[in-house]
Write a protein that binds this DNA or RNA. Sequence first.
DNA 1: CCAGGTCGTGGAAGCGGTTCCACGCCACAC
DNA 2: GTGTGGCGTGGAACCGCTTCCACGACCTGG
Lengths: 336, 336
Amino acid sequence: MVTIADVAAHAGVGAGTVSRVLNDSPRVSERTRRRVLDAIELLDYRPNPLARGLSRGRCQTLGVVVPFFTHASAVERLRGVVAALDGSLYDLVLFNVESPVHRDEHFATLTRRDRADGLLIMSLPPPPGSLRRLAESGVPVVLLDTHGPGVPAVVTDDVAGGRLATRHLVDLGHERIAFLGDEPSNPLGFTSSSARERGYHETMEDAGLKVRTGDVRHGPHVRAVARELAADLLAGHERPTAVFAASDTQALGVLEAARARGLQVPGDLSVVGFDDVEVSSYAGLTTVRQPLFESGRRAATLLLESLAAEEPLGEAEHHLDLSLVVRSTTAPPDEG
Amino acid sequence: MVTIADVAAHAGVGAGTVSRVLNDSPRVSERTRRRVLDAIELLDYRPNPLARGLSRGRCQTLGVVVPFFTHASAVERLRGVVAALDGSLYDLVLFNVESPVHRDEHFATLTRRDRADGLLIMSLPPPPGSLRRLAESGVPVVLLDTHGPGVPAVVTDDVAGGRLATRHLVDLGHERIAFLGDEPSNPLGFTSSSARERGYHETMEDAGLKVRTGDVRHGPHVRAVARELAADLLAGHERPTAVFAASDTQALGVLEAARARGLQVPGDLSVVGFDDVEVSSYAGLTTVRQPLFESGRRAATLLLESLAAEEPLGEAEHHLDLSLVVRSTTAPPDEG
DNA sequence: CCAGGTCGTGGAAGCGGTTCCACGCCACAC
DNA sequence: GTGTGGCGTGGAACCGCTTCCACGACCTGG
């Protein structure tokens, strides 16, 4: 393993000079710089990132905390993050979170500068204590699809999105519109679904429509669960003519349940999802599109900027736009 | 930032002793161990991973090189890797590869022990030079869904899978069966598609069926491209009664094209895919299932074992089983 | 009772960089 | 000619940990 001392010896200079060349210090003569660069080339020398990190007090690494398994949308966001980091000098370290224990373990070690130079936390409301420790140790943090006090966040307005979806169904003439989403209180504290549900309730009220008991269903964020919930919802003669699902994953479950019951979509039942994950265009699902990839890229870019400027970001919220994508799972309700 | 010296001072011992406690050395008396552990707890001390890594010559990090954007199946595999690494002491660093330049950049730095303790390379045939350098620097490598000389690999038999899919169509009574897959020579050198195509040709020959000119189509691994190729394939009156697509992504493109032409699936056209990604069950796609998640887990486990044993793995190939999953996109051809 | 182990421990050296400090050199001004 | 200052450079100290070596205390056997 060739070290900086080898390069120095070959170039006939001191180790400090090699280091200065490596770090683009102006205090090196052109002649010496050339000699050093030649030696580096000749020996195919590459600085040891560990040593460099130890001595500079940072590690050229960005931590991404993500509920990788839990939500289909996380992958799309992660893609955006990866794209933004590409070409930067930072490595991406992935921390998967599936449970509160998981989360706390990771945050316990991540709240120090020697573990990651910056942190991107996705969808997961970070525990206040961790946020405080992060602030103390000066690790810049960007939240993505979640909020926290004193920390910049890239978010969409889920309440508005819920309104958008519900409004669409109301405008089509639906009066009995059901909602299907996550448990309002879930172990990791995801809040998107509840916010979307709030938008649903607001719009229903504005439209003077009643939300019937039993027309709001909750369950874990899994397609099969959504299918079961929807199967139950759609059983019986008196059933809703439309369903707003809090995510595309769940909307697909609703579609499956409808198919299993022999209901025509959108003839007998309209379905709106949320997220516009890749499958949705294939399934022809009407949905609220949020720029998942772009949100990841945006958040990562913010983090890189903060790192480059060497100053913490403000508390600013960066809002991304939502839009309704009408495909073939929504239509006016059948007469009668 | 509390260091090992602080702990040592608090416990009234030397730094070396603290280190021995940290690393579970048996050469510490129970009494001292307790004192040190108490001090660690009191100060909430955590060793600096950079310093530790520098001094021990490893970094507790596993590199995963993955064409993250290119193939839908990569995500499922990555999930398996993440699952296997969970609870291990290794961090996962993600290296996305989309182009040969990308790949070579990453391999240039990754072929050293100070960057990652082990490497998992997915789907991507590694350049021989990189493999050699990795062997020289003693970084254990496991290949996943790809091959390389002298390196262990977790693979499936794509040729057999191609046969399985084609056989299914032949058994149903199809005689004019088309194939749609990746370009045989593509920038990153993916070979799965070609292998599956070989299985297709073998089976067609065994069955005494002719592969007509124009019934084999190639294009980049993107759903929209597959749709265009299929649209062309299915145009005209004389068209195949079945298509074997080299991946589910491409099979979905075929389904879209069929739908656009008003063809009934499986009435007018049977379609078989490959991979069994998550969408496929939703789409009711008949496909060759390969255990994507499990393959990732298996490969990561192998790597961890090799690291634990501190000896290189053999060249062994670990085969995972394929199985045909018959759903609703295949049926006997219509009479006439 | 002493030589020879073993055990537990402190402390120094080393991992491979960065950075600070000191120094020699030269140009320039007086 | 001598002081002054900046430039380019070498080298030491340091980052925080591991590990090796040396050493004292204690135990054991002859």
